[in-house]
Simulated scan of single mutants.
Amino acid sequence: MMPPSSNFSGGGSGEEKQCIVNDQMGPFVVLYILIFVISLPGNLLSVWAFIRSPRATQQNASVYLVNLLVADLLLLLALPFKILYDLGSASWSLMVFHCQASAVTIYISLYASIAFLAFIIIDRYMQDCHSLRSLRLQEVGFSRLLTLVVWLLLLLIMVPNMVLPTQEVKEQRYLSCSSLKTDIGLHWHALTVFLCTALFLNASIAVLVSCGLALKRLLGSRKDPKLWVDARQAAGNVTAVALAYIVSFVPYHVVRTPYTLAQTKVITDCQTRRQLFLGKEWTLLLSVLHLCFDPLLFFYLYAPFRQTICRMFPCCRNQSVGEAEEQAAEEMMQPTTSVQPEDAF
């Protein structure tokens, strides 16, 4: 076997040289370990807070937040396998398992997070826009149905990547997951990337439209101080989540398509493939970083979650009580059609 710094491995004079793209994973391993260590306590605390929250599944926004938390937990479960795989010292069976199962789980979690963040942004705009509160989109039953559709769609797209047959590959230190795929597996993988990119583009359009409407409402309310305060809060909420969405997921999708061309051997130049792989890994790391910030999102956007956390700290209790009273007063002013128990899915 050639030294780690070599671009090629294997192959005699009659064999095609194999391009190694994943022999520089040391920095990624360190950063992934840091992300895992930092995000694990926050997400476990989020699980505890949602369990203790009396209305964790009775509000429209909480449905999306809970499902976002489930996606984060899936990513946390899969991340140790990626860390071991990137180390290059894992057993062969563990590396194959990562390629067939845990890597696919990472992408299921990634696109579930994209969908639910988009739903949260849309919901935040609709919650703050009083004229839209009576729409069916604001009903809990519809939100649960929508999240179920997202999970089923992602499983339908992604699971074949786990179950399609693979080809035998000689054991090696640097295993490329695409080398395990047969032709039909590579074709399905390319289709998966296309479908998930389409999901991302649709979610991004919804995010941009919500941001545009929130800013339009803000500009149109400049002459009314009361409307200006509400519109500024709505625009701030939507813009904050939208910025997190853009920073986390847009760079990855800029690199994803050309990298897929390298995986499917449309791009064959080794140096180009190595650069695309490193670009994909850096932008994927940026996407995974949302694990650290989602607990802050739960705290900021969901008052019952915030109240549960504040009960743990005496200095926050007075603020928590004040927020509870304010939220109760706001809910009494909302139309009774916004939450209907019989619509529960």
Rank of each mutant, 00 (worst) to 15 (best):
Q263T: 14
T182R: 14
S320R: 06
S210T: 06
I205H: 09
G14P: 00
F305R: 04
L218A: 08
A115Q: 11
P258T: 06
C310L: 14
Y85C: 05
L208N: 07
V339Y: 09
A244P: 00
A324L: 11
L75C: 07
I157E: 01
A103Y: 02
Q100V: 08
E139M: 02
S248T: 15
L276F: 01
T257Y: 05
S134E: 15
A61K: 10
I35N: 04
E342G: 00
L34P: 00
M162F: 01
T239H: 12
L146V: 05
A231E: 03
L69G: 02
P80N: 10
F293P: 00
M158N: 09
T57V: 12
E168T: 10
S13N: 08
V70P: 00
L40C: 08
Y85A: 07
I33D: 00
D23Q: 14
C315S: 13
E342M: 07
V238A: 11
F28T: 05
F345M: 14
A115R: 10
V104T: 10
G42I: 01
L164C: 01
A103N: 12
I51E: 05
G42E: 05
S13G: 06
A90T: 06
S91M: 06
R124F: 02
S6E: 11
M25S: 11
Q59A: 08
A49N: 10
F293H: 03
I122Q: 14
Y85T: 07
K181N: 07
L73F: 07
R133T: 07
I246G: 03
A206M: 13
R311Q: 05
R173A: 05
L213A: 08
A344S: 13
R136N: 09
L215H: 15
F8N: 11
L180R: 08
T105K: 01
T308F: 03
S320M: 04
T308R: 07
D72L: 04
